[in-house]
Design a protein around this nucleic acid. Structure first.
Length: 563
RNA sequence: UGGGGCGUAGCCAAGCGGCAAGGCAGGGGACUUUGGCUCCUCGAUCCGUAGGUUCGAAUCCUACCGCCCCAGCCA
């Protein structure tokens, strides 16, 4: 099958091919990669693809992978994000060991290299305003023009740059630029900004600096300092690669890293944009970064998606250079695949309907043995109490069933899982005609759920003893966005939010055994789906999140019938 | 109209001159004390299009078409 067979050794993609060749042909002695998040938000499933790639390659080729925070813009970055990112990477199952770094660790070195470039006549302080710089840059089809400050002497540049550092100038008044080529077809070569003045407190360096290096000047140099061999990033940085190489070639850096780009992950029915995710949180569309509907790793975790499922998913989708949108069903498949193997089965009734077994003794209770996980015999069995009054799922009964409905109906016999066969004799309704109770009889000879005469009901239902069931709140989750491509075809992105992405059910009932399930624990409510204990859950006030439904062929049939 | 990329089934993706892997989704069937799981089974005479090279091409060449990224003192 899929993930089982996709062992690390046989997994291959163009990046791994390059690494393998570099190792084989001796261009590098050891592979060193890095995952370089900017701490300006929470990690999402798209980052997971990158994390799995970078840490995965390091593990497969016996190299190492660094965790490096790209913290060069104090205006957007916060310690909260740094802490959350580390927790998320660990949760995903990866370990950077001693190799935790920050671009801000290199600020002094970066400054020295900037001074070096000034000395070489390859960088200059520009007094143009941001607007002027934009005007001078030209357009995609017209070359830019050189700044009047481009020809300053090295001495003057050095003096100005030192004074920029010392805080003498206000934000935006000057920048340091690399002197490359204002007419280049590659706009990144039109004298890119290396340093800007930002009187802002940095989460790590505090107020030690008021000038901060730009991404282009900091990233490759940080890679070189750390001895990164393969600097793997997403496609939008392709145009920056020549600049990445230019800095490496023009600076006395200790190593020569190379950049490779792959296509970022896009998923249907969701959005993987830090900007949009931040809005969803800040504007209250969701409960927070860890809302179970969010594609963030913390949200996914709260939802009950196991890390192993995320890793399997990453292996399944591969790594390539073509823009693509992966159907979310693939992610869901990977998650179900893991949960099917690992989740203990439990009984829960989300929309209860009373069943009275008329021929069952009023004062009797039996302990039925129920298998915990048919996929894993070592998970054993448990006792579930059975008595005269039961709850079943309202959707498991129909008074006037269509042809393909196999469940309970008047006069029909079904199996109650691991208990008895029951037959519905009478339907009790309230004044409004709503079904409120089913009067049934059971067959004592079918104890455990099997008949001596081999008779086989067409349906098996889950159930709960009314006297023993425990109340619970269950939150049903569905795709955050109703459209597979949110905001496409000119629609407003937020208009595509799924109004039914969260449904809170407050009158659910679960097995008493679930009372001691720990926060985060995921179980399968038989025939319904996978559910996990939400952090807001407490004994006496249980709260479950629906991770995913089980695949449901009846739902498809029902949908066909009703249309 | 400048520069950089990408185009293989509904979706993801192998393939690197010898004649189209695999997975997801979907259809059909078997099994079933979860309408779950599992297991069988069906899908590109064709690889954006058109030419060309070759005994032979998705793989090489040429042209064209389409889509994505770049004009932050964001990353």
């Amino acid at each position: 099958m899929d993930t089982q067979n996709t062992s690390a050794s046989e997994k291959s993609d163009f990046v791994r091919d390059i690494v393998a060749a570099d190792l084989r042909e001796g261009r590098i002695g050891e592979v060193v990669t890095r995952f370089p998040p900017e701490p300006n938000g929470y990690l999402h499933i798209g980052h997971a693809k990158s994390i799995c790639l970078n840490f995965g390659i390091a593990a497969e080729f016996s190299g190492r992978c660094h965790l490096r925070f790209d913290d060069t813009n104090p205006i957007k970055e916060e310690q909260e994000y740094i802490d959350a990112i580390m927790a998320d990477v660990r949760w995903l199952g990866f370990d950077w060991g001693e190799h935790l770094y920050y671009a801000s660790d290199y600020f002094e070195q970066l400054y020295e290299w900037a001074v070096y470039l000034i000395g070489e006549g390859k960088a200059y302080v520009d007094d143009l305003s941001a607007d002027e710089i934009r005007e001078y840059r030209g357009t995609l089809t017209e070359p830019g023009k050189e700044s009047p400050w481009r020809t300053r002497s090295a001495e003057e540049n050095l003096d100005l740059f030192e004074r920029m550092r010392s805080g003498e100038f206000p934000d935006g008044s000057r920048v340091l630029r690399a002197k490359i080529d204002m007419a280049s077809g590659n706009i990144n070569f039109r004298d890119p900004v290396m340093y800007r003045i930002l009187h802002s407190t940095h989460p790590r360096t505090g107020d030690a600096w008021c000038i901060y290096p730009s991404y282009d000047f900091a990233h490759g140099e940080s890679d070189a300092i750390e001895g990164i061999t393969h600097s793997i990033c997403t496609l939008e940085f392709q145009d920056h690669r020549p600049l990445y190489d230019w800095f490496i070639a023009n600076l006395p850096v200790p190593s020569t890293p190379h950049q490779y780009e792959f296509a970022r992950l896009n998923l249907t029915h969701t959005v993987l944009s830090k900007r949009v995710l931040l809005r969803l949180v800040k504007e209250g569309y969701v409960r927070g970064w860890d809302d179970p509907r969010m594609p963030t790793l913390t949200g996914i975790r709260r939802r009950g998606f196991p890390a192993e499922g995320i890793r399997d998913f990453a292996a399944m989708i591969g790594v390539a250079r073509a823009d693509s949108v992966v159907e979310i069903e693939m992610l869901e498949h990977a998650v179900r695949n893991v949960l099917n193997r690992t989740a203990l089965r439990r009984f829960a009734v989300l929309d209860p309907l009373k069943v009275v077994i008329e021929n069952y003794p009023d004062d009797q209770t039996e302990e039925m043995d129920v298998i915990n996980n048919p996929e894993d015999p070592s998970a054993g069995t448990r006792k579930v109490p059975f008595s005269r009054e039961l709850w079943i799922e309202r959707g498991d009964f129909m008074e006037d069933p269509p042809k393909k409905f196999f469940r309970l109906a008047p006069g029909r016999e079904v199996r109650l899982r691991s208990a008895y066969f029951i037959t519905c004799n009478e339907v009790v309704k309230d004044a409004k005609g709503r079904v409120i109770e089913l009067r049934c009889t059971y067959d004592p000879a079918t104890r455990g759920g099997a008949a001596p005469d081999e008779r086989k009901p067409k349906a098996t239902l889950h159930w709960l003893s009314a006297a023993h069931a425990v109340p619970a709140e269950v939150r049903l989750y569905d795709h955050l966005f109703a459209s597979p491509f949110p905001g496409s075809d000119g629609r407003e992105l937020f208009d595509d939010l799924n109004p039914d992405s969260e449904t809170v059910l407050r009158d659910c009932l679960v097995e008493a055994a679930l009372g001691d399930a720990g926060i985060g624990e995921t179980v399968q409510f038989e025939r319904l789906g996978y559910f996990c204990v939400d952090p807001e859950s407490a004994s006496g006030a249980l709260v479950f999140n629906r991770t995913l439904t089980l695949k449901d062929s009846w739902a498809k049939i029902r949908a066909q019938i009703t249309t």
